[in-house]
Computed example of a mutant assay.
Amino acid sequence: MDDLSSLTESLRELATETVGRLAQAKCRIVFAESCTCGMVACELGKIPGVSEWLCGSAVTYRNDTKVRWIGVSAVDIDRHTAVSDPVARQMAAGVLDKTPEADLAVSITGHFGPDAPDGFDGLVFVGTCNRMDDGSVRCDARSFRMKSVGRQARQIEATQTVLRCLINALTLMRSTKD
């Protein structure tokens, strides 16, 4: 099995587990995707029963779209670049704000080349925001470095990373409610 086939099989397993975890938690999810171009929602959409939990995904690939669709600060994009912790947090917060039925939002922004600025090639940030019982929103972001080579392999690896972050977020949400 080649590397892409292995990545794809692992992705299918993660998507299935994620939908099961969303159902267990009775959690509705929305995404803001940049470098994955909607792949996270696409992979979840392949799993039967996901329509109860998946609200949608805003593919905000370009900076202006991030600003106009989900309210990311143009100043922060200029100051930190689109591939940054503040932008990942704002993407998740913005798409959650636009999706009142969602309990949790996850975002991803990254750079897969070519022509990535120095230090950015393969770097992604995943943001999460969840609604608390009191109506407040809690946001977090983490950075990851993709190890795969090639754009398609990196998009699959990044999608896996998002799903793992989502599984972790659902586990944390569940433990705080128990």
Rank of each mutant, 00 (worst) to 15 (best):
T161E: 04
D133R: 05
K46N: 12
V19H: 01
V19D: 00
C165F: 11
S51T: 05
T81N: 09
R142K: 05
S10D: 15
M146T: 04
S57V: 01
G38I: 02
C139Q: 10
R79I: 12
G49W: 05
T81Q: 03
L104I: 15
V30T: 03
R12V: 14
V95T: 15
D76E: 10
R145N: 10
V137K: 10
A82M: 13
D178Q: 11
G56D: 01
A58F: 14
V124M: 00
H80N: 13
P86Y: 03
L7N: 05
D178R: 12
M173S: 08
G20E: 03
R145D: 02
G94Q: 02
K177G: 01
D97Y: 14
S136A: 11
L170E: 04
H80T: 13
T60P: 10
D115Y: 08
V50D: 00
W53S: 01
S6M: 11
F120W: 08
D118C: 10
V83G: 06
R12D: 11
S5P: 02
E9W: 10
I47V: 15
I47N: 03
E43K: 03
C129L: 11
T8C: 06
T109E: 06
Y61H: 09
T161V: 04
A74R: 08
C37T: 13
L11H: 02
E13N: 07
S5N: 02
T176D: 05
C35M: 00
V30L: 00
T128N: 02
L166E: 02
S5V: 05
R151Y: 04
V162R: 01
E13F: 10
A25P: 02
K46D: 12
D178Y: 10
T176W: 06
N63F: 05
L96Y: 11
